[in-house]
Design a binder for these strands. Structure first.
Lengths: 240, 240
DNA sequence: ACAAAAGTGTTTATATTACACCCATGA
DNA sequence: TCATGGGTGTAATATAAACACTTTTGT
């Protein structure tokens, strides 16, 4: 006998002494010079409410495979940078489903983003517009801690930006120095002197000059690209 | 009808499409001038094999409560510093139980350690003596990735030591500068010039002089204590 | 010619590294 | 008196921070 996924879920949540492991995804992008998060949307008469894309995991697949599957089903986005964040659980969270949230942090470039995303399913919400009130579907008792998870992800993003070349996951393949600086300024909320910024970035030795120029605005700007294709952790000096 | 925990576990692992969430604990201490890990032991004729203390979580309690319960049941250790590490899952791990491992990293001071630990249950293994061969009970097909988890925890420990005052969780309440330096040297594997080490530590402003001295060896040594009772992240300079 | 973004150097302050001798105590 | 671990300072180098004008292009 086949039972629907919903039904099966409700049986589990009552019968078992364990919480049900699920994945929740905080996916950031930079859009219109703002840090944004891709969220699932529910509209009420005069307001909107959002939750993180997520779903229950299947034991036949790895966490990464489950992530890819869930993100694709919920948003149609594929091929993003992803990293596990933290696992959240409390007996109070998500009373209906009793799900344990293995949260992931993801980055998507605007290129990839517009190629893949399904706008009938998701909303792009400015990070600064997200607050406790518009996160979580109160009536269904889900997403109660999604605001906290987003905060946690933002912290991780700032950290990663400082210590790795992860900015490449948000930028197009080739970019000008001012675009790179903008990413850092948007995400950290600081503004930097462009001479010092450039000196710092060059000292990290993570960029290559392409020899090409962007002529879209006034004086043509040199285009750079990241040297390493994979995530590179920038080594810090020893403790002492 | 009551069914035993073992039996129930086996039913779950077969019937469910989800993995069973469990906690695995990597608990470090510094003992006899060596970095050590507290592990559960199984002796064979001519060799020993170890796994991480761990157990299945109950949804009636938070992760922290589950952690405390599991650690106490398995080792009798209580009141340690703990921090969630990472959640490991793959369809290949732990074939019998299909458990998903929410791993934790913990630190225990020798003081606390000897007050609480139950040596009939656990072994204290030098970190450097741990290898793929002596971790995991092959016959029972458990702990297959515990070596990987320990490596991950060691990395986190080094990081925490550099960026926080977490050393306080391993040291006694009052300690001399050379003890603090030893902790750093043992864990990072580096050796430091004691003048530079002192300058660095003082610059972080995380210590207080107690005014007391340790007279146990030769010239009496000043005793210090940590200024903050809670974990303090040492702010790094801004990116640029 | 002017508006807009790109490009470029120097000075000062701070942090890091390398390095060696004297001190207080117990045995 | 000597062996042991504790305590202390300075000079050289490297990194970070503050700061403003010129260049190239499109309009």
């Amino acid at each position: 006998m086949l039972i629907s996924k919903e039904k099966q879920f409700d049986i589990w949540s009552q019968e078992l002494s364990i919480p049900i492991p699920a994945i929740d995804i905080v996916i950031f992008t930079v859009y219109q010079n703002e840090l944004c998060v891709v969220l699932l949307k529910q509209d009420f008469e005069w307001e909107s409410s959002y939750i993180l894309p997520g779903g229950i995991i299947a034991k036949w697949f790895s966490l990464e495979e489950n992530f890819d599957d869930i993100l694709k089903r919920k948003t149609w986005i594929t091929g993003v940078y992803k990293e596990q964040l933290y696992t959240f659980w409390s007996p109070k969270r998500d009373k209906r489903g009793h799900t344990l949230s293995i949260s992931y942090f993801a980055l998507v470039s605007m290129d990839n983003f517009f190629k893949n995303i399904d706008f009938t399913k998701v909303a792009i919400v400015k990070y600064k517009d997200i607050n406790e009130k518009n996160i979580g579907f109160k009536d269904k008792n889900i997403g109660s801690d999604h605001f906290e998870i987003i905060q946690y992800a933002k912290q991780r993003l700032e950290w990663k930006l400082e210590y790795t070349n992860v900015a490449k996951e948000i930028l197009p393949e080739k970019f000008k120095m001012s675009q790179l600086q903008a990413i850092y300024e948007i995400i950290t909320g600081n503004i930097y002197d462009k001479r010092n910024f450039q000196k710092k970035i060059f000292s990290l030795q993570i960029l290559l000059e392409t020899g090409e120029f962007d002529s879209s605005t006034n004086r043509p700007a040199k285009l750079y690209t990241f040297k390493d294709k994979d995530l590179k952790i920038i080594e810090k000096n020893s403790f002492v």
